[in-house]
């Protein structure tokens, strides 16, 4: 069992990231619906996102919030439902966090540069 201070902090981070995600997901969906009204091509998308710093910043925040929120939740599910030990669940969660960060920032980089 990990100590209670860490658990309380994890809860705090998950709560915080959930609030950020709520805003990000809504904005993300609204943006998709708005931008694709009249059809959209890859070239058109890139034309808008390349060098667009606010856009990249928004998605960087989105990626970070995912990388915090998802692994904490998955860890809890693994421990409670799959009866994994705390330690193995934490390691798996750390790997997933890293994977989300790498994949997410790679995507942000790809549309920005």
């Amino acid at each position: 069992m990990i100590n209670v201070v860490t658990q309380a902090k994890l809860w705090y981070w998950q709560r915080l990231s959930a609030m950020v995600l709520a805003l990000c997901v809504v904005s993300h969906l609204a943006m998709i619906v708005y931008a694709s009204r009249g059809g959209l091509t890859a070239a058109e998308i890139l034309a808008r996102t390349r060098g667009n710093a606010p856009f990249a910043a928004f998605y960087s925040v989105f990626v970070a919030a995912c990388a915090i929120h998802v692994p904490i939740g998955l860890k809890s599910i693994a421990v409670e439902w799959l009866r994994w030990r705390e330690r193995s669940a934490s390691i798996a969660a750390a790997i997933i966090a890293l994977a989300l960060l790498v994949m997410g920032f790679r995507a942000v980089y790809a549309i920005f540069v």
Binding site: V4, V5, A8, K9, W11, Y12, R15
Partner: peptide
């Protein structure tokens, strides 16, 4: 309690 413990934890008071 979740809010109170979280607040205490991030302040280093838990």
């Amino acid at each position: 309690l979740k809010r109170a413990t979280a607040k205490a934890a991030v302040r280093g008071e838990l």
